[in-house]
Design a binder for these strands. Structure first.
Lengths: 244, 244
DNA sequence: TAGTGGTCTAGACCACAAT
DNA sequence: TTGTGGTCTAGACCACTAC
């Protein structure tokens, strides 16, 4: 099967995005084999009837995803990698639904409280301001997967009438018009304490994979802190790094 | 102090890179405060005497680093975050040297061997091909930090006369003309076994933070596998995610 | 309505790698 | 020498936001 690309100029989807999507699918379908060289920018741009900068933008998105590698004077090649699903800026909920498992959520507690000093600094709000504290347990079928503690300033969102079992935190934020654009995460590990062990069906002292996150909206404001603890047999993080 | 930008057109450093670096420094120095709005693209481009696409490219690099957030119809703002050092595509060695600590390396073993089936699939080489197996212990002062096992195809590099105590693996690869451009990492955790515990001054069964990595060069070829185990009290991973 | 970033074009010159 | 991607320009039109 030969590489066959086309664009729909009446579509509201940007041209570079259409092209990037088709190239990505061609790679995933094996039409573009690992290690294979992609035609050069001018040829691709001509075939599709788009300009070279537009074609470059399409290729760059795949380079950023770690699927293509480019080298001046040489060309563009498909990375010889196994297929992977990258970590994206979505909630754990989205991740699990997409992978076709059977996730559910228990809300252990949700309450208004006063922010502590460290949290206030991280969220850049005033000490003493009110925040929501949420604690949830994530399950796959009957198996506990993660214990998630989150802090959201009350000024960001009213959680008093929100059902977090029905949809994830990020989906709830989106529904309230809050778009999370940047997140800083710190990944580590430690031993489970007695309470964590009980909730996660682990033994006290078992290793847990931990993630601390600060999330920012499209105005640059910190909107959420998260401290999650995962059972390492059921979850890990995948990260793709690209040198530009 | 006002924002003051300039470019040197005689420099070989790309204009967008010069501008991005100055903006980054302005943010780190507090000249551009968190939450502050940056002048719009046309104004910045005019002040510097560069075109709008060039200015956009500079701004985009900072968006990708999670330092700026842009919103159509609104403008560009500095993210209200604490200062962080991002995970980059460098070796642990580079990381530690840069943070001013006193790192050293012990090479526990280095030998030629035959690749196993799983490794051959991941590296996309033939089963039975020869590889280098390296095991190293990373220390901070007297304290063990990480146990690192790496596999490199013999076709990539000859390690028989290389001193890995003097410089890191990635530096050695660079010196051999191999440029690592993409890496896929999986981060998890597990218990230390008896040997790991002894080498890392931990107890058997203690939690270790683990990282499995496959690295690719600028032709898309897999050039290295890594399985590292870190002491969680001394090391964690930071990741910045950006929604585009 | 005014101003912002998002997209797109049609060129140009350059640095680098392969031959 | 040829071909590649890297950089840069000077415009254009559009979608979205705030007023």
């Amino acid at each position: 099967m030969a590489l066959q690309l086309s664009v729909d100029r009446s579509s509201p989807v940007p041209l570079y995005f259409q092209v990037a999507g088709q190239l990505e699918q061609a790679i995933n379908d094996g039409v573009l084999a690992p290690g294979e060289r992609v035609p050069n920018e001018m040829v691709l741009a001509d075939e599709l009837g788009v300009s070279r900068p537009t074609m470059r933008q399409a290729l760059q998105t795949l380079v950023d995803k770690g699927m293509l590698v480019r080298k001046r004077g040489v060309g563009t090649q498909v990375v010889k990698a196994q297929i992977r699903r990258p970590v994206e800026l979505t909630s754990l909920n989205d991740d699990l639904v997409r992978t076709g498992r059977d996730p559910s959520t228990q809300v252990l507690s949700i309450k208004r409280a006063t922010v502590d000093a460290a949290e206030a600094a991280e969220l850049r709000i005033k000490p003493g301001d009110e925040v929501w504290r949420v604690e949830r347990l994530r399950l796959i079928g009957e198996q506990p997967l993660a214990l998630m503690a989150n802090v959201i300033p009350c000024s960001v969102l009213d959680l008093s009438n929100v059902d977090l079992t029905a949809r994830g935190l990020y989906e709830t934020l989106r529904a309230a018009g809050i778009h999370v654009r940047v997140a800083h995460q710190e990944i580590g590990c430690r031993r489970a304490d007695a309470r964590e062990a009980r909730l996660l069906s682990e033994r006290r002292g078992s290793p847990l994979l931990t993630m601390r996150r600060t999330a920012y909206d499209d105005a640059g404001n910190a909107v959420e802190l998260g401290e999650h603890a995962y059972r390492p047999a059921l979850y890990s993080f995948e990260v793709t790094l690209v040198d530009r």
